[in-house]
Amino acid sequence: MAKFKGAIVVDTEKCKGCGLCVVSCPTAVIELARGVNGKGYHYAHMANPDACIGCSSCGLVCPDTVITVYRAKAS
C-alpha cells in the first residue's frame, strides 16, 4: 500500500494528447481518452485513479502544463 494517495486534474481542452504523461507515470494511472477535446486531441485522463501516488512526474514532463497534481497521506 502506497504511503500517499494522489490525484491529477487535466485541463482537457488545452491537452494535445502527446502521451508523454502516460509513459512518465510510474503507476500507470494515465491513459489517453477514447473521446476527443474541442481540438480533436485524445486528451489525458486518470484511467486508473486508485494507483495515483501524486508524484508529479506527469506534471513535470507535460509540455503544455495542463496537469495539476494533488497528494494526500494515505488514510
Binding site: G54, G59, T65, T68
Partner: peptide, 8 residues
C-alpha cells in the same frame, strides 16, 4: 488546496 503539489 492543501494537497496541491504541482501547478502551473
Amino acid at each position: 488546496e492543501e494537497n496541491l503539489v504541482y501547478k502551473k
